[in-house]
Structure formats: C-alpha cells, structure tokens
Amino acid sequence: MVREGDYVAIFNSIHRVMEAERLLKDKRLSILLIPAPRALAADCGLAIRYSEAARVEVEAALAQAGLLPRELYRRTGEDYVKIEGEV
C-alpha cells in the first residue's frame, strides 16, 4: 500500500481523516485513504497516503482547512521516518 518515499499522514480522529479525504479528493489531489501501517499507532487505524509530487499541494490544502495531521511519516526502506516540526 505504501511505496518507497510516500508520505503517511496520521490524524487523531475518524472524522478528521474522513474530512481530509473529502477535501483532498474534491481538489482532485492524488491521495489514498489506507489502513495505518501496523508500525504506526493510529487511534482510528486510518491514514492518508500521498507522494512527494503531491506533498506541497496536499499539505497546503490541509493547513488552509485546519486539518493538519497529528503526525507525518515517510516510508524509507522498511521503516517509517517521522517528519518532525511544522508540517
């Protein structure tokens, strides 16, 4: 589900993740709602996946709507590396 270099955004509630999915799809951005990888604890078990190419637009849209994720990770090899700081 998650390819090398993809970003995985974890939200803190099912309502926020669904709202984020709706917003990003309405903007025709290339994202996919996925089961949160087991290695990443997510309260609702869901996450939004996007690629490097879509990152700027996705995060700008989320920021504008007040829907920034609780945590953001990037797939690097077998690991998920946490992206620290302001998303």
Partner: peptide, 17 residues
Amino acid sequence: EELGRLLMRNFIMTLVE
C-alpha cells in the same frame, strides 16, 4: 453509507497484510 464504504475499503486493503 460513507462509513460503510470506508470500512470495506479498509478491510480489503488490510487483508493484503
């Protein structure tokens, strides 16, 4: 409906693991 569709997608993607 929206929750049901989301759960089904999530179920099928989870099966892969």
